[in-house]
Every structure is written in structure tokens, then in C-alpha cells.
Computed example of a mutant assay.
Amino acid sequence: MSVDTLIERVQKTSQIEQRLIDNLLDTSPQFKEALATLLRESKHHQKLSQYWQAAIDVALVASHASNVTAYPHTNSFEWTISALTAPELLAELAPTDPLAGARLRGMKVKQELLYSDGQPLRSEEVAQLLGISRQAVDKRRSKGQLLAVLLGKRGYFYPLWQFKDGGVLPGLDSVLTVLAKFDAWTQLMFIKTGDLRLNNLTPLECLVAGNIDAVVTAAACYGEPNPA
């Protein structure tokens, strides 16, 4: 779809549709003018232009397909994913991307894993909390003593639950050592998901209770069939 066609579609949207697109794209209140300017300026940068054209096109589809009428006071990742996973929108997106729904639901799962226990910490905040340097934080992460997920250019984010009383949750390093063959998101999934080997408690609940050996054993079996 051409830039001019997109601008024309944006100009024709109703006020309710404008609000939805504004939330999905996190634009300014004067979003029609802002989007038109954005598209025209990005016209000379192919990758940027393609990205914004795709984002705006999806938002336009959402504005027509979704029945979402409740808007957050501040833009919310959770609200955005809920809007984008509305059945009406997925029905529109499915012909061009059959896996769109799965990808969006996967994003929602990751958001819940990372934020359900509180705002995750950046490297600088972890350094301040533990009383060590930023470089020491990075070293602990690379050695599997701290768990962090990489969110693109935003850098590493450290789930809040792994810190306790100004230190690190006891036993976490032992568990991460056993899980070293898995990526950070998979490690996080293990720690926050109930396990049959732990009587359906999560490894995090068991670590907090001091049952470190049981969690290490469960971690060593992770990825294998659960016991009957």
C-alpha cells in the first residue's frame, strides 16, 4: 500500500477509530497530522517507511475490525495486545499472516512473565540495589548468576522477584546453572510455571520457601516428560 493511500485512509477515520489507532501507535493527540508527516518523512528511508506503513495498516484494520471501546488513561502494552488479539482483528489478519494470533499471544505471555511481580529493573538499578558496579552486574548475568531478558535496544531487564533483602534470591544461581542450555525467556518460563515435580508449585514459590534442592532437581529434568 502506498504512503498516499495510507494517508487518505487515515484522513477518513472516525473519531472513535482515531482514538484506537492513537493508542495502538502511541501517537500524539493530533495524530492525523502527525501520521501524515511521519509517513512523508519516512518515504525516503525504505526500511523505516515499510515499518510505519505496516504498523499503520494494521492499526487501521484494527480500528475497523475490533469492538474495543475502553481506552486506558495511559497507553498500555497489555491493552494493546488485548486489542490486537480480538477475534475480529485476527480474522482480518489471518489471510496474510496465519500465525499473527500466536505471535501476539506469545507477546502477552512474555509481558505477564516479566511484569507480573512488579516493574523489572535495568542494569543500573540492579547495580544500585546490590551495591556493585554496572560491569559487575553484566558479569553476573553472563555467568548465569542473575536472570535478565534482552528487550532490543532497551537493553537487559531483570525480573524483580530474584532480589530479596538487598541481595539475590538464595539458590537462583544453582538453578540457572542447570538451565544454562536454555535461553533467558525459557528459564523465566520454567521459574514462573507450576511443575508436577514440585507438586504443581512454581519453582519460584519453592525457592522462596527454601526448597532449593527440589528446584534444582526439577530444573535438571526440564524439557523431559513429566512423571506420571
Rank of each mutant, 00 (worst) to 15 (best):
M1Y: 06
S2I: 00
S2A: 06
L6R: 11
Q11T: 08
I16M: 13
E17G: 15
Q18M: 12
R19Y: 09
I21A: 09
N23S: 13
L25M: 08
S28R: 13
P29G: 08
P29I: 09
A36I: 03
T37A: 11
L39H: 06
K43L: 05
H44N: 10
K47A: 09
K47C: 03
Q50F: 01
Q50H: 04
W52Y: 14
W52T: 03
W52D: 00
A59M: 01
A59R: 04
S63K: 07
H64S: 15
A65H: 08
V68R: 13
A70F: 02
H73G: 12
N75V: 14
E78S: 14
E78G: 09
W79G: 03
I81A: 14
S82D: 15
A83R: 06
L89V: 08
L90R: 07
L93H: 10
P95A: 12
T96I: 14
P98W: 12
L99T: 15
L99W: 12
G101V: 08
A102P: 05
G106W: 11
Q111F: 13
Q111V: 04
Q111R: 12
L113Q: 15
L114Y: 00
D117N: 11
R122Q: 06
S123R: 15
E125V: 02
E125C: 04
L129I: 03
L130R: 10
L130Y: 05
G131M: 06
Q135F: 02
V137F: 05
S142L: 10
S142N: 11
S142T: 13
K143D: 10
Q145K: 15
L147R: 07
A148H: 05
L150V: 05
L151V: 06
G155P: 03
F157L: 09
P159S: 01
F163V: 00
K164E: 08
D165K: 13
G167A: 12
S174W: 07
V175L: 02
T177G: 07
V178F: 05
A180N: 07
A180P: 00
A184D: 10
W185N: 01
G194V: 01
G194F: 06
L196I: 10
L196G: 06
R197A: 04
R197G: 15
N200G: 03
L201V: 07
L204I: 07
V208A: 10
A209I: 03
G210M: 04
N211G: 02
D213N: 11
D213M: 04
V216T: 03
V216G: 02
A218Q: 02
P225D: 05
